[in-house]
């Protein structure tokens, strides 16, 4: 369970104030909002990279407002994957277990299971350099799930992918949602992703979180055409 109570976050030029957000255990929540609305700042506050100026954050019934991000036990997948480039895929997947000083044999078997689930068994000895965008996200997702966190935070995990890869990773996220029952907070600006994945949908508008009704998938389709996945200005 993720529970934000009256949380305030200062994020550069704007501030989020009085944020209330409750995501029950095992639910897949999607937080939507325009670019620059503060979605990532809120996510960072939950993970612990950004200090909150007021309010409390509870994860799985524990107040973690002042807790170090290393102890919060959140699996985190950033937009660009942020793979450890000097390590092989296998070492990336094993990282959280190595930090926890897990027995070597258990690490090997856990990594093998993860690689199978993510469909990256053939990549284990490769370095991240030269992997495709989709492969990178699979590795990053596997790495975040390695220590079996009860909470998963995904920051626009599909936005850097082409449409084919996007569909594949979306299917993978659906599989994980079904299998693991991890409480997930998925940040995106894409209605299509939200409609396919969300048990609960939230919108961040003008520094406030609003509960939005899940949207039927077919309404979304036309809207997705309008929203280019890549910002045309950045090309």
């Amino acid at each position: 369970m993720i529970c934000l109570n009256d949380v305030s976050v200062h994020a550069g030029p704007f501030r989020l104030e009085g944020i209330h957000l409750v995501i029950p255990s095992g639910d897949y929540a999607v937080l939507m909002g325009k670019t620059g609305a503060g979605k990532t700042s809120l996510l960072e506050a939950i993970i612990g990279f950004k200090a909150v100026t007021a309010g409390t954050i509870c994860l799985a019934g524990r107040d973690v407002t002042r807790e170090n991000p290393a102890l919060r036990g959140i699996g985190y997948l950033p937009q660009d994957g942020a793979l450890f480039s000097t390590m092989t895929v296998e070492e990336n997947l094993a990282f959280a277990l190595r930090v926890r000083k897990v027995d070597k044999r258990r690490i090997v078997s856990r990594v093998r299971d993860l690689a199978e689930l993510m469909g990256i068994g053939q990549l284990l000895s490769r370095k991240p350099h030269g992997l495709s965008g989709g492969e990178r996200q699979r590795v990053a997702l596997g790495r975040a799930l390695a220590f079996e966190p009860s909470i998963l935070c995904l920051d626009e995990p599909l936005s850097a992918l082409d449409s084919e890869m996007r569909e594949q990773i979306l299917q993978l996220l659906l599989t994980i949602k079904r299998m693991k029952g991890v409480t997930t907070l998925h940040v995106t600006h894409d209605l299509g992703e939200a409609a396919r994945l969300a048990d609960r949908l939230f919108r961040l508008v003008d520094g406030k979180v609003e509960i939005a009704d899940p949207i039927p998938a077919r309404e979304v389709h036309s809207q997705r055409e309008v929203q280019p996945s890549v910002d045309p200005c950045s090309i």
């Binding site: 612990g48 991000p69 290393a70 985190y76 660009d80 942020a82 990282f95 790495r143």
Partner: peptide, 15 residues
Amino acid sequence: INPRCEQVAISLGCS
């Protein structure tokens, strides 16, 4: 160097 990598490492339990 991408500072996100360090953040991810911390979220995975590192000091």
